[in-house]
């Protein structure tokens, strides 16, 4: 335990911990990262590609790396005068590692041809896809986001209300709980074949599946949150003249919110999985479909690009949910470890 506290109370350190002064550390860290990006740029631009390969955008990729290198070097020097730039120093080790990774990737693909094509295209091939095929990718992101949002919100809303109902009403608990127990653990994707012929469109079928995947954890955790509310909270509200409605809305639900958020996180994770499967198997749009389509054409660079965008989309949404929780449950700070 004391080790944990030490860890927290210690000031933020970067990977370059050996240099004492923050300004010096920032400068050295920044310059090291800039140098690494220069290396990546130079390696891409001046090391000739393997003879039979023909990559467009090699120059552009090198230029982008060089630009980033210049920007980092500038920020490193600016950090001597302006502390704002010193904050970048936290990122320096990661930026450096990323540059080295890209350089190595470039070397083993385009330059040395050690990895087999078309499965392992060089970085500039992915840049090429994002620039040349951005229309289709953007449409894919929009389609996925629309499907995901519809399904997630529907599932979260229904799950939340069901959870409150089971937690609150004995009758609802009696009827819904066994159904939930029986059907809930079934992965939502198991319903896929059925959903696609029962529902009028593949979109509505996928909305249903995503809602199902989201709804189950939200229901179970909302329910356990409501059921676990300290009964004295109710006693207090009752002696102060609270109605049933007040007990549900102002006592049970706020008290259950920390649990509800755990459910929402799990539900969101589930919804990603269902989304991709649904898009791969039925829906003719979205990033999942794009992945499938790219594989059909053996366009592996397109696949990596779609995976990259999907990772941004998913982690962005998780971050968004974290922000929302931090806002709504700020009262928990200090009660639990964040």
């Amino acid at each position: 335990m004391s080790a944990v506290i030490d860890e927290v109370s210690r000031p933020q350190k970067s990977g370059f911990g050996v240099f004492a002064r923050p300004a010096t550390r920032s400068l050295i860290g920044g310059l090291a990262a800039a140098a690494a990006w220069f290396v990546a740029a130079a390696l891409t631009a001046f090391w000739p590609d393997k003879i039979e390969s023909d990559w467009a955008y090699t120059g552009n990729f090198a230029a982008a790396c060089a630009t980033l290198a210049f920007a980092l070097a500038f920020a490193a020097f600016a950090g001597i005068r302006f502390t704002v730039f010193q904050r970048l120093q936290r990122l320096s080790p990661w930026l450096l590692a990323l540059a080295l990774f890209l350089a190595a990737w470039e070397a083993v693909t385009a330059k040395l041809g050690l990895l087999p094509l078309p499965f392992f295209p060089p970085p500039q091939a992915i840049v090429e896809v994002i620039i040349d095929d951005w229309g289709r990718l953007a449409a894919g992101i929009l389609a996925s986001a629309r499907l995901l949002a519809t399904g997630f919100f529907l599932g979260a809303a229904v799950g939340f209300m069901t959870g409150v109902a089971i937690g609150w009403s004995r009758l609802a608990g009696y009827w819904i709980h066994p159904v939930l127990r029986f059907i809930g653990p079934l992965p939502a994707t198991a319903w896929l074949p059925l959903a696609f012929f029962v529902f009028p469109s593949s979109f509505s079928a996928s909305v249903f599946l995503i809602a199902l995947g989201t709804g189950f954890p939200v229901t179970v955790l909302t329910w356990s949150g409501v059921a676990g509310v300290n009964s004295t909270y109710y006693d207090i509200a009752r002696t102060l003249g609270a109605t049933q409605r007040f007990l549900v809305l102002k006592v049970a639900i706020p008290a259950a919110m920390p649990h509800v958020f755990v459910g929402l996180f799990m539900g969101l994770g589930n919804s990603f999985a269902v989304l991709v499967v649904a898009e791969m198997l039925g829906v003719k749009a979205g990033l999942g479909w794009y992945l499938q389509w790219a594989q059909g054409w053996a366009a592996y660079a397109n696949m990596y690009a779609a995976l990259l965008l999907m990772a941004f989309l998913c982690s962005g949404l998780i971050t968004l949910l974290f922000r929302l929780r931090d806002r709504l449950l700020s009262w928990q700070k200090g009660l639990v470890r964040w």
């Binding site: 002696t239 003249g241 008290a255």
Partner: peptide, 16 residues
């Protein structure tokens, strides 16, 4: 009834 109010052993304020 709100004319009879209880103060419990534990303050049980609503943390939120």
């Amino acid at each position: 009834d709100p004319s009879r109010v209880v103060v419990f052993q534990d303050p049980t304020l609503y943390p939120w």
